[in-house]
């Protein structure tokens, strides 16, 4: 039971912060919706469609952030065999896939009126689509083995290999000519987003992050229960 001592302590802490995370998620997303749909102005070029940004951009950030978390957890799991790391990576993947899907669909809904097309195969859009398939492949590989530790190891290797896609997504708009515009927030010379549009964006981004943490804690709890079920079944068969 040494293996489970650490996750138990971790889950005690996680369960203590869970109600706060859940409450703040609701507050921040509500604030983001109010600021984004009611209070923020239309853009001088894009008009009202700029409001799609408040779901599209935070989803894109979450898609990258969650994949980076999975890659780091996978490295930790492969090198230090930390039992929690595998669970965190495994529990994160569906949430990351969901955010990537939101990013792709809202991007398409934004691209049609503004660019004049639902989809183009430029470097940014294509690399994000690859990210989505990496998520799906990760989830599938994780469940492809009867022995969960073997599935976790195979999926961890895939997660690390796929991590090379992250810098490609981030810098695709700078390295190659793309239809997608470069980043607005990380520009060094001048703020490219007016504050009336920045606040709803940030509220949604923090709200989405807390949503991820909330769902992650529930999913970790679920994974630990599943592990207990597996152990009991083994005991049942063995005894």
């Amino acid at each position: 039971m040494q293996r489970f001592a650490n996750p138990t302590r971790f889950m005690r802490m996680a369960n203590a912060v869970l109600p706060w995370c859940a409450a703040l998620t609701v507050v921040l997303i509500a604030a983001g919706l109010y600021l984004g749909l009611v209070r923020s102005p239309a853009d001088y070029q894009q008009g009202e469609t700029v409001r799609i940004m408040y779901v599209h951009v935070p989803s894109a950030w979450m898609a990258l952030f969650i994949y980076a978390s999975i890659a780091m957890a996978s490295a930790t799991a492969l090198i230090w065999k930390h039992p929690l790391a595998d669970l965190i990576a495994r529990a994160s993947a569906p949430v990351g896939a969901g955010f990537t899907l939101i990013c792709l669909i809202t991007g398409s809904l934004w691209g049609k009126p503004m660019w004049g097309t639902w989809w183009v195969w430029d470097a940014r859009l294509t690399s994000v689509l690859i990210l989505f398939f990496l998520y799906l492949g990760y989830i599938a590989l994780n469940n492809a083995f009867d022995d969960p530790t073997r599935g976790a190891r195979a999926a961890a290797v895939l997660a690390l290999v796929g991590a090379v896609n992250l810098p490609i997504i981030k810098f695709s708009v700078d390295w190659w000519n793309t239809l997608h515009q470069p980043a607005s927030l990380t520009r060094l010379d001048a703020p490219a987003i007016h504050s009336s549009m920045l606040w709803p964006l940030l509220a949604m981004a923090v709200g989405f992050t807390l949503f991820y943490v909330t769902v992650l804690i529930f999913r970790l709890r679920s994974e630990i229960v599943a592990a207990k079920i597996r152990n009991l079944r083994l005991v049942q068969i063995g005894g």
């Binding site: 102005p41 853009d43 183009v120 515009q181 607005s184 490219a192 987003i193 007016h194 549009m197």
Partner: peptide, 10 residues
């Protein structure tokens, strides 16, 4: 296709 820049403001 239109390509817009990364500036957003009222």
């Amino acid at each position: 296709l239109a390509k817009h820049d990364e500036t957003y403001m009222p």
